[in-house]
C-alpha cells in the first residue's frame, strides 16, 4: 500500500491494509480526519465535517 502525506500538516501517513475509497483516516501527527479519495495512488483530503443531520 503506497504511503502519503497529510494535506493538513504534511505528516507521514502509512495506510492500513484493505483501505477503501471513502474511508476516514486520522493523521497520527496532527489528528486531522482525512478522507481517502483514491487508494492507488493514495490521495487524501480533509474529511467532511459531521453535519447536524448526520446519524442513524
Amino acid at each position: 500500500m503506497p504511503e502519503s502525506e497529510c494535506p493538513e500538516c504534511a505528516g507521514h501517513i502509512t495506510p492500513r491494509p484493505n483501505l477503501e475509497v471513502g474511508e476516514i483516516l486520522a493523521c497520527p501527527d496532527c489528528g486531522a480526519k482525512l478522507e481517502v479519495k483514491s487508494v492507488s495512488p493514495l490521495l487524501l483530503q480533509k474529511a467532511p465535517n459531521v453535519d447536524e443531520d448526520w446519524g442513524e
Binding site: V21, G22, E23, I24, E35, V36, P48, W54
Partner: peptide, 29 residues
C-alpha cells in the same frame, strides 16, 4: 449509497462479497 465508508459500511461490503454480491460504491456527494 454512502457519505463516508464507516465501519458499518465496510462490514456490509465485506459481507456482500462473502455472499458473492459485488456491492458497488455510490458516494452521495
Amino acid at each position: 449509497l454512502y457519505t463516508i465508508i464507516s465501519a458499518e459500511n465496510k462490514l456490509l461490503i465485506e459481507a456482500a462479497k462473502a455472499r458473492g454480491l459485488e456491492l458497488e460504491r455510490l458516494a452521495d456527494g
